[in-house]
């Protein structure tokens, strides 16, 4: 174990996978000379050379498409898009090609590719650079969606992504890049997809988050315990597709209450999906309607106070729990 930041844990995963598998290569906007817009790939160009760390033009659709082709041709590419908001320019490639080729070709063609992108608000980058769209990608069958919440998971899940035979959309919350944590240094350390992490056990309510929202959930649980004597169980989903619904259902059957926390917009979002699944499978165990604490239904404003108001906070989570007890 070594203590390192989230971004360094990601870099370690990339390094180890580049060393482990000669088919792995990285490409993306400013990942080489510049070192990555969030410094995740810093130093990798020097270490692995321009054949395995490719700086690309700003052409999201082109480079994701080239990644798909390279994967079809037998390689294991990772494509970095600076932010999830830019991934819209590559949405057709991700949805119509990467996600569908395996099914449409009846299993003849698969696309083993990792697409990394940053998401999340809190840095006053305004509406085109601040949204969380994990739930959008979770909508599409055929791809996997990974949203780590801490350095160890970041490394273990990213390493696992390179070993998957499908396209993995790997989403990193910008607020987490500098977070420190203990990270295993075993090069074979990976975390299986579809296994949620029970961060904290509790008996009165289940609070579910992923990516950055795990920490609002976690802080809220601490506040609930110290201020109200309420015991909250906190679940980090880790991956939205595949979704570990069994762990969520088992927890809700124990606590009889569920609150879902996410930065994304509430309307039509992933929290709605998860809420419906809980209702379908644990209706008789619920003592209150499932609550959703989500981003406000607005394009993200620049102003600091307005941005803060648009994002879910731990106080919002506490309020939601108190309202259902």
């Amino acid at each position: 174990m070594a203590e390192m930041r989230f971004r360094d844990a990601l870099r370690e995963a990339l390094r180890e996978e580049l060393i482990r598998d000669p088919r792995v290569f990285l490409m993306g906007e400013d990942i080489g000379l510049y070192g990555g817009s969030y410094a995740v790939t810093k130093g990798l160009l020097d270490e692995f050379g321009p054949e395995r760390v490719l700086d690309t033009p700003i052409a999201e659709s082109g480079i994701v498409g080239a990644g798909i082709g390279a994967a079809m041709g037998g390689l294991r590419p990772m494509v970095e898009l600076m932010t999830i908001n830019f991934s819209f320019l590559a949405l057709d490639q991700i949805v119509n090609s990467a996600a569908k080729l395996y099914y449409m070709s009846n299993g003849q063609i698969n696309v083993p590719m990792v697409i990394r992108m940053a998401s999340g608000g809190g840095s006053q980058l305004a509406a085109t650079h601040s949204h969380s769209l994990e739930g959008l990608y979770a909508h599409f069958p055929g791809i996997k969606v990974v949203c780590p919440s801490n350095p160890a998971d970041a490394k273990g899940l990213l390493k696992r992504a390179f070993r998957d035979d499908n396209t993995v959309v790997f989403i990193e919350h910008t607020a987490l890049y500098s977070m420190k944590g203990e990270v295993p240094d075993d090069p074979e350390f990976t975390i299986e997809f579809g296994k949620a992490n029970i961060l904290r056990e509790g008996k009165d309510v289940t609070i579910i988050g992923y990516s950055g929202s795990v920490w609002q959930a976690s802080r809220a649980a601490t506040m609930l315990e110290s201020q109200e004597g309420i015991s909250a169980e906190v679940i980090d989903l880790r991956t939205l597709r595949p979704l570990d619904i069994d762990t969520v259902i088992a927890s809700v059957k124990k606590t009889n209450r569920a609150v879902i926390v996410e930065d994304d917009w509430k309307f039509g979002g992933f929290a709605g999906e998860l809420s419906a699944q809980i209702m379908e499978r644990a209706f008789d165990w619920l003592d209150a309607p499932v609550a959703r604490v989500c981003g406000k239904d607005v394009p993200m404003p620049y102003n600091r106070n307005l941005e803060f108001a648009a994002l879910p906070s731990e106080e919002d989570v506490v309020d939601a729990v108190l309202a259902m007890l």
Binding site: F25, G65, I68, M72, D92, Q93, N96, M104
Partner: peptide, 22 residues
């Protein structure tokens, strides 16, 4: 493959060529 989103397969061809080259 046949590709039914117009021009979507052009970047894929670049990737296939890149794989052959690498």
């Amino acid at each position: 493959g046949g590709y039914a989103i117009v021009a979507a397969h052009l970047p894929l061809a670049v990737g296939l060529g890149l794989a052959a080259k690498m």
